[in-house]
Design a protein around this nucleic acid. Structure first.
Lengths: 255, 255
DNA sequence: TCAAAAGTGTTCTGATTACACCCATGG
DNA sequence: CCATGGGTGTAATCAGAACACTTTTGA
């Protein structure tokens, strides 16, 4: 067997969400990179880059995300492989990931880069439901990532991927409300959250407004999301492990 | 931008299931192809092949499946992109699909090929829970495909992808039981199926054993599975459309 | 002391389960 | 006429939704 290089190139991109506090309710936001060359020069696109022959897909997602935006996700999962012939002028298969970034990490990571003088350029954050026209088929990709996020929040604990270590139930509820786009009953939300077995109450309280709210951590023994039988046992590096996702839904908001 | 071919090659493989009638209960079976060359010469592997620069991913899955096994799926959906560096001696990213084939189509399609003298070679069917050691990481891939199938059967209508146009409720129930690996209450199953709105009763009956059972068709207006916002409007060719999957589970067998 | 969020209790509803029971047919 | 699967009825259970209510704080 001779090794003939293919004329199909493999790219890796990532849709990474964070929660941006708003006056009324928080909203989902994501960073985009402005393209400097054709095709689609000047347009906004998802952060990403070419797959290197010496790295796995997950590693490529983390690397290209870091090199374009300076961000390291708190949750990372493969989304889909896009490979229509006409999705780009040249033949490119894009392995797309979606990710979450804890709110407190956004500023921290960007500040760290600013200090080292390697602040990412040509990057801007956009509200997830108010995006400009994107390069390639990235509009569709973001739409699908949003759909997956909204769906997954219903049957897994990924919402925690957007919060710091300690949080109040109201903060957790706000994450759900932002993602789902509707209000949730605080009383019922509390009971469900407590019954899930994933929350550990601390003896600390968040004070400042009205009645102090108890702070919770969460049980790291429980995975953020069931990733199916192929889940890697433990993450070798800092970021979260990635294996095929339990793509199966189990509630049924949109069946 | 000069176009430099990548040293990463893209393959497409498919895990395609059908239901094999057994004395007691039916069981899931899938076709494998015996490799004739190294690496893993002599071992069984998933049907597949190299992605052609002129075809999309879905088309490549259909084409390679047909050319290796002679089969055309009744349901086809992308499963996952596997791209660990060491999963093959050379650098290969495999876009893996999973598929269903209606029981009545297996024999029909194979017979058609036999008649034309183009019967596929080196192909054999195996029971899904009794597989030999497979080439590459294909064991894991099959395991993941099974997991996804079992999961998805709980919140979508994919079970119909394994049945002919008309079927009895007992036959439909048997599909569920085979996939889930447990018995279901016939009475409750009937009510759920009827309440789903996806079944159309015919005025024909399956006779032969005891009391005749009504035959049902199903409502083609309802998608087999919610594929998310990116679903292709209509399949251009014969096989089913494929878009990103609503990977979200909604029941919770394994949360 | 009052507004507002934290937190508890109670009721109602719908889906799921378990299981008793009747119906229709082939042998 | 009876064994067997087709098909119906019904009561118990459980999760979720709705909402009234009490508690605790800062202002």
């Amino acid at each position: 067997m001779t090794r003939t290089p293919s004329d199909v190139r493999v790219a890796v991109s990532t849709v990474i969400f964070t929660l941006r506090p708003g006056r009324d309710a928080a909203s989902l936001a994501l960073p985009l990179v402005r393209r400097t060359r054709d095709p689609f020069g000047g347009r906004w696109a998802l952060p990403g880059g070419w797959l290197d022959a010496a790295e796995g897909l997950d590693a490529a997602a983390s690397r290209t995300l870091a090199s374009t935006t300076g961000l390291a996700p708190s949750y990372l999962e493969q989304l889909y492989a896009f490979g229509d012939v006409d999705r780009s002028p040249t033949r490119v298969v894009s392995i797309v990931y979606w990710a979450l970034l804890r709110q407190d990490q956004v500023d921290a990571q960007l500040a760290a880069h600013a200090e080292h003088g390697d602040a990412p350029d040509n990057v801007a954050w956009f509200d997830a439901d108010d995006l400009p026209a994107l390069a390639f088929d990235h509009d569709q990709i973001v739409e699908y990532a949003l759909w997956r996020l909204r769906n997954k929040v219903g049957y897994s604990r990924i919402a925690h991927g957007l919060l710091p270590d300690e949080f109040t139930l109201a903060e957790l509820r706000e994450v759900y409300e932002s993602i789902l786009g509707r209000r949730l009953d605080p009383a019922n939300f509390r009971r469900q959250a407590e019954a899930s077995g994933t929350l550990i109450p601390t003896d600390r309280f968040r004070t400042g407004s009205h009645r102090p709210a108890r702070l919770y951590r969460y049980n790291r023994d429980v995975e953020l999301a069931d990733r199916g039988p192929l889940a890697h046992p433990t993450p070798p590096d800092g970021t979260h492990p990635t294996g095929p996702d339990r793509t199966h839904p189990q509630n049924r908001n949109e069946e």
